[in-house]
Amino acid sequence: MANKDASFLDEVKDVNPLKVKSKTIDSAPKKPKPIPRKLIEDEGKALLDSLSDEYVSPEIESDENNYFLRSGHSPDIIKRLKRGYWTVEGSIDLHGLVTEEAKECVVKFIQECKKKGIRCIRIIHGKGYGSINKEPVLKNKVRNWLSQKDEVIGFSEAPRHDGGSGVVIVLLKSNN
């Protein structure tokens, strides 16, 4: 075997490699681009900080079917949300989370949906049965956070068979 290796090396000793520039042949592997982790972290914190827990939107209706519609949009949007016109493409459940965890989850969830082009989402905040005073803590907070997000066109309380007052159906702006 050593004899074959030696004869092969002897035969190719004067060969020079071809200098070919090809899009398919890459002589040196490219280094991956660095991930700007600090920038991503800072942007996430800025988004969280931009939502106030004390803010109360004057546009949120306070009847038995809470809803919100950003000004400049057709009232038909709320009717369609209540009737299930749009298919819910994403859902998040906030049960068991404290306010800050819930806020972070809502912000990240909306960002992900925006990236994926998802328009109609469901946010389950619960009815408050598990809270200390048996009062819904997250219900009003989630609705106020949503009304502060520019991506949100509107939202409506889910129909009774879909969770009723413990769930909100949200319509997001399209990426177009």
Results as ranks from 00 to 15, higher is better:
Lys21Leu: 11
Glu11Lys: 03
Ile60Ser: 01
Ser147Trp: 03
Lys127Arg: 15
Glu157Thr: 15
Val12Tyr: 12
Glu89Val: 00
Ser62Met: 12
Phe8Arg: 07
Pro17Arg: 05
Val137Gln: 11
Val142Ser: 08
Asp10Ala: 15
Glu112Gly: 07
Ile60Leu: 05
Pro136Cys: 11
Gln148Tyr: 07
Pro58Ser: 06
Asp150Met: 06
Ser165Ile: 05
Arg83Gln: 13
Lys115Glu: 15
Asn3Ser: 14
Gly117Trp: 04
Glu89Asn: 07
Ala158Tyr: 01
Lys21Val: 12
Lys19Glu: 07
Ile25Gly: 09
Thr99Cys: 06
Glu157Leu: 06
Lys19Met: 05
Thr24Met: 11
Ile110Ser: 00
Cys120Gly: 00
His73Tyr: 08
Val12Asp: 00
Asn66Ser: 09
Lys30Met: 10
Leu81Tyr: 05
Thr87Cys: 09
Asp162Ser: 14
Glu43Trp: 10
Ile77Val: 02
Leu172Ser: 03
Gln111Glu: 15
Ser50Tyr: 01
Phe109Ala: 02
Ala2His: 11
Phe155Glu: 04
His95Gln: 12
Lys108Trp: 08
Gly84His: 09
Val20Phe: 12
His161Ala: 14
Gly164Cys: 13
His73Thr: 04
Ile123Gly: 03
Trp86Met: 07
Val137Phe: 05
Ala6Tyr: 08
Asp63Ala: 14
Asp150Leu: 07
Glu135Asn: 14
Ile121Gly: 04
Arg80Glu: 05
Pro58Val: 08
Leu48Gly: 00
His125Trp: 12
Asp26Trp: 09
Glu59Trp: 10
Lys33Val: 01
Lys33Pro: 04
Gly163Trp: 01
Pro136Asp: 08
Glu101Met: 13
His95Ala: 09
Ala28His: 12
Asn16Arg: 14
Asp14Ile: 03
Pro32Tyr: 03
His95Leu: 08
Asp53Val: 11
Ile132Glu: 14
Val107Thr: 04
Leu47Tyr: 09
Arg83His: 10
Leu81Gly: 02
Gly96Leu: 02
Ala102Lys: 10
Asn66Cys: 07
Tyr67Gly: 01
Tyr67His: 12
Lys79Trp: 05
Ala6Asp: 05
Val152Leu: 06
Ser22Ile: 03
Tyr85Glu: 08
Asp63Leu: 11
Leu138Asn: 07
Phe109Glu: 00
Ser52Leu: 01
Gly72Ile: 04
Glu59Ala: 15
Tyr67Thr: 05
Asp49Lys: 15
Gly84Cys: 11
Glu100Thr: 01
Asp14Asn: 06
Glu89Ile: 01
Ser7Ala: 12
Ile124Phe: 04
